[in-house]
């Protein structure tokens, strides 16, 4: 079993001079200040608050682990965790596959390719509120575009947002609207693959599918890993779509974790419990991310990497 040799193991970075260090620190200073003031502070505060009962306007009362214990008897905690995990398990792989597929389609030299790329990317920059309102109409049972399309084949589509069994699939379907952002990153990855690798594969008799499987996929596997991790984190932070479109309903079928957290914080004013929820979510995402990284060595190939056999 061999380990990995990285670039830094071979080329040691030179030590910086005082002025070089100072310049570097000055450049990162705004970010560091912003991080401590607006991110680091609230993160630490939320950890402390999670051990208290706090209704925002009155002083917090120490509660120990009570908020974490409450979760175990909160059916909506488990429901929201289930909904969000199901969403992540289906939506993230789907976004990766569709994003990659679109990127491959757009990685060709045809006329107006710039226009096509722009059109596919455009949805990713539209405001989520307008998009959600538009999708409510697209998903309408009686007048929506999807059910109209299905009706051409004699299929009466469901009430996508009004039936518990279809509401989550509807939001997963809607998540594909934003694959343009991922597509752009895949496109950059695809264009970074040296053409001589394809030429060598062709010489070895590889067809298009074999080229994709043995050249394209390994070469963009770091991009897929990046998309997987970022997509997973984003999936666990879904809020605006259910907040605008379903309010967690029907029958809590789209009660995403952040919506449950939001309600506890800003509708029930249980800041301590909401903070505890946020830390459990953080741990959950951290564990999943670590697992992904742990098993990534088996399928992710880095260009600068030298594997000791």
């Amino acid at each position: 079993m061999g380990g990995f040799l990285r670039i830094n193991d071979i080329f040691q970075p030179k030590r910086l001079s005082f002025w070089e260090s100072l310049n570097a620190w000055i450049f990162v200073l705004p970010w560091i200040l912003g991080f401590f003031l607006f991110t680091g502070g609230p993160i630490f505060a939320s950890l402390v608050i999670s051990f208290t009962h706090w209704d925002i306007v009155n002083p917090p009362q120490w509660a120990g682990l009570a908020n974490y214990e409450t979760m175990l008897s909160d059916p909506l905690f488990f429901q929201s965790l289930k909904v969000t995990t199901m969403y992540a398990l289906v939506a993230v792989p789907l976004q990766i596959v569709v994003g990659l597929f679109v990127a491959i389609l757009l990685n060709t030299k045809i006329r107006l390719i710039g226009l096509y790329r722009t059109l596919f990317y455009l949805p990713a920059v539209l405001p989520i509120v307008s998009v959600a309102v538009m999708w409510r109409w697209i998903l309408s049972r009686d007048w929506g575009l999807i059910n109209w399309f299905l009706s051409l084949f004699g299929v009466y589509g469901p009430g996508w947002l009004s039936e518990p069994e279809w509401a989550l699939p509807a939001l997963i379907l809607m998540s594909l609207w934003g694959v343009g952002a991922g597509m752009l990153i895949y496109l950059a990855g695809l264009q970074g693959i040296p053409t001589d690798l394809y030429e060598a594969a062709k010489v070895d008799g590889a067809g298009p599918w074999a080229q994709f499987l043995y050249v394209t996929l390994p070469m963009i596997s770091p991009v897929i890993l990046f998309q997987l991790v970022v997509g997973l984190i984003a999936a666990f932070q879904v809020f605006a779509q259910p907040f605008i479109m379903t309010q967690g309903g029907p029958q809590n079928a789209t009660l995403f974790y952040l919506l449950h957290l939001f309600r506890n914080a800003f509708e029930f004013f249980r800041m301590g419990y909401a903070s505890a929820l946020s830390w459990v979510l953080f741990m959950y995402i951290a564990i999943l991310t670590m697992l992904i990284f742990r098993f990534s060595a088996a399928w992710v190939f880095y260009e600068g990497e030298i594997r000791n056999e």
Partner: peptide, 8 residues
């Protein structure tokens, strides 16, 4: 109004 009516 049904749930579907009100979804629109």
């Amino acid at each position: 109004p049904s749930a579907s009516d009100l979804a629109d």
